[in-house]
Design a binder for these strands. Structure first.
Lengths: 114, 114
DNA sequence: CTGAATCCATTCAGATACTG
DNA sequence: CAGTATCTGAATGGATTCAG
């Protein structure tokens, strides 16, 4: 069972590493989970749901998630402005994997932190 | 269906966030995957398998993974020294979740990067 | 061989103030 | 309301050298 080098995570050129890098920052997984739980959310709602994120990091992370096609951004031309965020289909498909990590984290929390 | 605040990922005190933070750095997932594929590995073997990691980051990341009980470190009192790393049982249990992320990454690579 | 120690550049991330 | 701009300190990560 040979491994194709292009797809081997151990090689720097591997697309898997390329992708993992895009979501392994401090806030991405948390924002994705939040949107998964709540569906469509506005900027302010996200900020309320994640009280300890700064406006700057929220903006930056949302922008990157959008550029990576994991979330949708819909802006309404109203005053005051309204912007709604939601998971794309691609983003939704990632959630089961994240869910497994969360379960694992819950199960092993005591052991890891003690 | 109430959420218990202590376990709600949206709260800074949540253990899940605490744990995710420990493995969402640049190299941890990659090292865990490597050990999962190859079983027991020496320091140099890990370095060869992940050619673009620096010695410093390899050392640091291994040390942290060990402190978090995700890998075992076994040192032999020989000259030259030999040190072997392997997944703990806790580390092994995380692998299915990582595997799902890898599959997802493969499936959506073109879409995300284009 | 398996690191530890040091130095340095880059990036990250928070606080604050401001805008349409 | 939904951001942007700017400043600053902290953290990350690479290169290199040294040690047991």
């Amino acid at each position: 069972m040979k491994t194709i080098q292009r797809l081997d995570p151990l090689y720097p050129t591997c697309p898997i590493r390329n992708i993992i890098d895009r979501i392994s920052d401090k806030w991405s997984l948390l924002i994705l989970s939040t949107l998964n739980q709540n569906g469509i959310m506005r900027y302010k709602e996200l900020n309320n749901a994640i009280p300890d994120i700064s406006q700057k990091m929220l903006s930056c992370t949302l922008k990157r998630l959008e550029a990576n096609k994991l979330i949708n951004r819909k802006m309404y031309a109203e005053i005051p402005p309204r912007v709604e965020y939601s998971l794309t289909e691609t983003g939704q498909k990632l959630m089961p994997a994240i869910g497994m990590m969360v379960e694992w984290a819950l199960e092993h929390y005591d052991e890891i932190t003690k």
